[in-house]
Design a protein around this nucleic acid. Structure first.
Length: 603
RNA sequence: GCGAGCGUAGCACAAUGGAUAGUGUAGUGGCCUCCGAAGCCAUAGAUCUGGGUUCGAUUCCCAGCGCUCGCACCA
């Protein structure tokens, strides 16, 4: 991303950022002027197939049919009532059974492109949607004492993209890594640590120093197997857990070291992915708040005793009327339902959250549905304000056989290894394609391409479905891949380098003549739809809408690049094509950054 | 058993209830004395089955089928 030029805060707003939303509002006014029954009318404006125009209003069809009117007659009345501002900006046509098609005039396209000429101005345009709201996003959230594996990838990548989208839409975003640092695994782990220490303290220390998570995982396995084999050891492990939860200094010290080492290892991956959390409130953070949860849910009659546990049933729900939400175990211990309830309350009281987004795989859907139902009733009973609650789910990462992704010997794939392999594969490719670039820079490029490929493979696809992990398709240069998008950006940078011009220079762009060729117009028409791509991706919390848009934008640019030469002699033509290049670069890089990817100036 | 998600070309994916269901790969045929061919242009190929709602259904509802996952003290 190039450095932002200093600019005044104000944006000339005489061209709307989101033209579809603007048209929707204008249509309502026009409907009123045309004598339509306005409360019953919606314009239903959406981006159109380019063959029909830029935007289409479908609202007339439903309106007319419901009233047994002729939709084309209604459409004609509506079009006749459109203000000059619209008819001056668009070619308007009625088509088919009653669609109203709007095609932007070239001068307006150019005006939009001149207005939204920097990341700051784009953000100012998009930033009204969630202006002033506070959103807490809970993502990544690995368990400590374990390495992050491929299963942790999607939450981190999708969560970060959602954070950036919300931020771009004007929200204040709190990135919260809700790490699993308080589970029952610590009993066995502490037991195994103590055994190993008693046997050979120096060996343990050096093993931990070499690769802490590797050693903790090994110790956990040792503890787990020993406890399974011998009930006496199981009891000892339980006792260690109780000691930990009661604040035993020795166990607490071991626990602290495990968490500290774990977070340090996670940080290496977060750095690679460009993720920075604002807070890391793990489950242990809420440990002292559970009593209030028990009290409030019991006092308000929401929770009840069942088989010794404290649970919540939801009688109105077909399944949760019998499937309990267990918020205190029969042995009196808390579980993740308890901490998640406490977490919801904390996010309301401490952060004043307007929205909470939790990003986990779909297998936890039942848990969060129960949690949100419970929170709804609880907050209502206590007259707490209820934030918007979203469980953002995603499918599994599978191998090409459709089964959960594993190493050849059946082990889990470590995220660190996976990212390193992505870089190695990208390095091989860059060496093959760009042997003229110095080795040091190639390594840098490979880092960006490798990680971006992994991120983009995830983000380019609807998160609901499982996703097939295939190196060859992911690092590929062809198709809807990060490399294709980064390449498009690199080519644009290359044009500016060749011509000795800085992208977006006002003096260069001043001479631009109106857009004219089909390729210029198609590219410009795609650029103005950035606003709607952002809107849809944010509203649905589905980043793939933005990915798809960027891919199509890069495609339009490539078509333009092939059809129309930028470095022509005519200064006005050259200026307008440079303006298109600059704006494509701006939108592409802004969009990729919103997805969490780093971009390149050459590759 | 109950419930959820998914089912679109050989393969991998897209389609905020809209017009002739889009794209990539693999296939076929073109395009580099010209700003980066990691590219562009052209071509062929698909909605699991059966009902329903709607002016209009890949999308919503119902019933099947298939795959995956969840369902009392793991997270």
């Amino acid at each position: 991303m190039r450095a932002p030029r200093p600019r005044p805060e104000c944006v000339p707003m005489n061209v709307a950022f989101n033209l579809a939303l603007d048209l929707e509002a204008v249509l309502l006014t026009a409907a009123s002027a045309a004598g339509l029954d306005v409360p019953g009318f919606v314009g239903d404006v959406r981006t159109a197939d380019p063959r029909h125009g830029d935007f289409q209003a479908n609202g007339v069809l439903g309106y007319a049919k419901a009233r047994k009117l002729n939709p084309r007659v209604i459409a004609e009345k509506l079009v006749a009532a459109l203000p000059a501002a619209v008819t001056g900006a668009y070619d308007v046509a009625i088509a088919g059974p009653g669609f109203i098609n709007f095609t932007l005039k070239p001068a307006v396209l150019l005006h939009w492109l001149r207005t939204y000429d920097s990341t700051a101005h784009l953000k100012a345009g998009a930033g009204t949607a969630k202006s002033g709201q506070i959103w807490v996003v809970d993502y990544s959230s690995p368990n400590t004492a374990k390495q992050m594996h491929v299963g942790h990838l999607r939450s981190a990548v999708i969560g970060e993209a959602i954070c950036r989208l919300l931020d771009f839409n004007g929200a204040k975003v709190v990135r919260d890594n809700h790490v699993g640092d308080w589970g029952t695994q610590f009993g066995k782990l502490i037991w195994a640590c103590k055994q190993a220490r008693a046997r050979d303290e120096a060996a343990l220390k050096s093993a931990i120093a070499l690769d802490p998570l590797e050693e903790f995982e090994r110790l956990y396995k040792v503890g787990n197997e020993a406890a399974d084999a011998d009930p006496a050891i199981m009891d000892q492990a339980r006792a260690e857990l109780v000691k930990l939860q009661n604040g035993d200094p020795e166990n607490l010290a071991i626990w602290r070291q495990i968490n500290g080492d774990s977070l340090a290892a996670f940080q290496v991956i977060y750095d690679q992915l460009g993720i920075k959390f604002d807070v890391m409130h793990g489950e242990s953070f809420y440990n002292d708040q559970v009593e209030r949860i028990y009290r409030e849910l019991t006092d308000s009659g929401i929770a009840q005793e069942s088989q010794g546990a404290l649970v919540v049933f939801h009688p109105e729900h077909p399944r949760f009327k019998t499937q309990p939400f267990i918020m205190r175990k029969a042995d009196g211990a808390s579980n993740y339902a308890t901490t998640d309830l406490a977490t919801a309350l904390y996010r309301l009281e401490h952060f004043q959250a307007d929205g909470i987004v939790v990003v986990t795989d779909y297998r936890q859907a039942d848990h969060f549905e129960q949690l949100f139902l419970t929170v709804g009733k609880w907050f209502a009973a206590k007259h707490y304000r209820l934030p918007e609650l979203h469980h953002v789910t995603f499918g599994a990462v599978t191998g090409e056989d459709g089964k959960a992704l594993r190493t050849r010997d059946g082990g889990t794939i470590r995220l660190k290894q996976l990212l390193d392999e992505a870089e190695a594969r990208a390095l091989a490719l860059v060496g093959e394609r760009s042997s003229d670039i110095p080795a040091g820079e190639r390594a840098q490029i490979a880092q960006t391409v490798g990680v971006a490929s992994v991120q983009y493979a995830d983000l380019s696809q609807n998160r609901s479905s499982d996703y097939v992990f295939a190196w060859d398709k992911m690092i590929s240069l062809e198709g809807n891949t990060a490399a294709y998008l980064l390449y498009a950006g690199a080519r644009i940078h290359s044009i500016f380098r060749k011509l000795g011009v800085t992208p977006g220079e006002a003096t260069t762009e001043a001479a631009a003549s109106p857009l004219e060729t089909p390729a210029e117009l198609m590219l410009a028409r795609k650029l103005v739809k950035f606003a709607d791509a952002i809107r849809i991706a944010t509203e649905t919390l589905r980043p793939h809408f933005l990915s798809l848009y960027l891919y199509e934008l890069a495609g339009e640019f490539s078509a333009f690049y092939s059809a129309d030469k930028v470095a022509v002699d005519d200064p006005a033509v050259r200026a307008r094509r440079l303006l298109l290049c600059a704006r494509t670069l701006l939108v592409l890089e802004t969009g990729l950054n919103l997805l969490g990817l780093r971009t390149l100036t050459r590759m």
